[in-house]
Deep mutational scan, measured.
Amino acid sequence: DEEIEKWIETLLKRNISLRVNGKDLEIGSEEFKEWVEKFIKEV
């Protein structure tokens, strides 16, 4: 979905790490990609 890709790009540009389930996810890491894929499937 384009919306999500733009959102991810924005996050990448800002180099933010997300806190997911109490863990810091490094943007661009494998864990982050897995989380994004799960997130996309749920939406």
Rank of each mutant, 00 (worst) to 15 (best):
E3S: 14
E30S: 11
F32H: 01
V36S: 00
W35M: 04
E34K: 12
S29H: 03
K23M: 09
L12K: 06
I40W: 14
E31Y: 08
I40G: 01
V20E: 04
D1N: 12
L18Y: 00
F32A: 02
R19I: 12
G28Y: 07
L25Y: 04
W7E: 02
E2T: 12
L12F: 02
S17D: 06
L11V: 07
D24G: 05
L11F: 09
G22N: 05
E5K: 15
D1M: 14
I16K: 03
I40E: 02
W35A: 05
R19Y: 04
L25A: 04
E37D: 11
R14H: 15
V36Y: 09
I16A: 05
W35L: 08
N15R: 07
F39I: 13
I4F: 13
R19E: 07
S17K: 11
E2S: 14
V20D: 02
E26K: 12
K13D: 12
K38Q: 13
K6W: 13
R19W: 01
F39E: 02
K23H: 08
G22Y: 07
L25H: 04
N15L: 15
E3L: 13
K6N: 09
N15A: 12
K23L: 08
D24M: 14
F39C: 09
E42V: 11
N15T: 09
E9A: 01
W35G: 00
K41W: 06
V43F: 14
N15W: 11
R19K: 11
F32V: 03
N15C: 15
E2H: 10
E9Y: 02
V43R: 07
K13N: 13
V43N: 05
V36K: 03
I16W: 00
L25P: 03
F39V: 08
E31R: 05
L25S: 03
E31A: 11
F32K: 00
N21H: 05
G28S: 05
K33F: 14
E30M: 12
W7F: 09
I8R: 00
V43H: 12
K38V: 07
W35R: 00
R14Y: 11
E42Y: 13
N21D: 08
T10Y: 09
N21A: 06
N21I: 07
N21S: 06
V36Q: 01
K13E: 14
E9P: 00
E9L: 02
D24L: 14
K23A: 08
V36P: 00
D24N: 11
F32I: 03
R14M: 15
I40K: 05
I4L: 14
G28E: 05
K38E: 11
E37G: 08
F32N: 00
E42Q: 11
R19A: 08
S29P: 07
E34V: 08
I16L: 00
K41P: 01
N21F: 06
E26P: 08
K38A: 11
G28L: 07
K38M: 09
E30V: 10
I8P: 00
R19M: 05
E3Y: 14
W7S: 01
K6I: 10
K6G: 06
K33R: 14
S17Y: 00
W7D: 00
K33W: 15
G28I: 05
L12Y: 03
I8A: 02
S17M: 05
I27L: 12
W35C: 07
T10Q: 13
E9S: 01
E30W: 06
D1K: 14
K33T: 05
I4P: 04
W35Y: 05
E26T: 11
L18K: 01
I27M: 05
S17G: 08
V36L: 15
D1S: 12
K23Y: 10
W7N: 00
S29Y: 07
N21E: 07
